[in-house]
Nucleic acid binder design. Structure first.
Lengths: 110, 110
DNA sequence: GCGGATGCCTTGACAGGCTAGGTAATCCGC
DNA sequence: GCGGATTACCTAGCCTGTCAAGGCATCCGC
């Protein structure tokens, strides 16, 4: 298996992050860790993708940020889902399901 | 449902086209039609995406092209899967499965 | 002291899909 | 036979989002 995900992440990162935050506020680093843990490292979230994505979503009002402390007592920026973000998550989740189903229809038949 | 697929297609288009051609040679226009038909229009393949993708894949040796006739008797460029293309299809299909499974692990839990 | 982990951030490049145009031939209705 | 829809191909330029590669500071264990 050469390069696992390649470009596939395109367009799904937002949904992944929103979903992660739907379990409760987290800082960026923890979001990446969580996603990697849940997927057994099948999904790697690069920091160079993560932070721009967080700003983007904050700008769009999907998440809000405030400085606080991590579980380990370090300075960390905590992100929290806004109501708009929750709505967006719903939209993107259903889009993903629809898209994945459509791709499977093409790709999976023997 | 605003804009169905948005950026999601990123990285999956090649696999979709390769798979379509694995059923037999087709011209570009027919490839797009076929994908749209199979997915009930859930997946729209824009021509501005399709043709560049075909060149790319031809350049990479995954498909080969020759001028011929469409079923309707018109001039058309017929694309055909090469052995390398078939191998690539295998790789991308398994990548897709793995990726889709990973995303679902994150996204679908209630 | 020094390496590794935690945590945040930025710059620049790049790939790939989309918009919006264009061409040309053929078919169909009137 | 004229006009519009359909079939079929192609291109330039934009835009978005991801990634690679760097940097910074703090804290812990050895």
């Amino acid at each position: 298996m050469p390069k696992p995900t390649a470009d596939l992440l395109h367009g799904t990162l937002d949904a992944l992050v929103l979903k992660t935050l739907s379990w409760g506020p987290r800082h960026g680093y923890a979001v990446a860790r969580w996603i990697e843990d849940v997927t057994g490292d099948d999904l790697r979230i690069e920091e160079g993708s993560l932070y721009p994505a967080l700003y983007r979503m904050e700008r769009r009002g999907w998440i809000s940020a405030e400085w606080g402390m991590s579980e380990l007592g370090r300075k960390a920026k905590l992100y929290r889902l806004t109501p708009q973000g929750r709505a967006q998550l719903k939209v993107e989740t259903s889009q993903w399901s629809q898209f994945a189903a459509a791709v499977s229809k093409v790709l999976l038949p023997a």
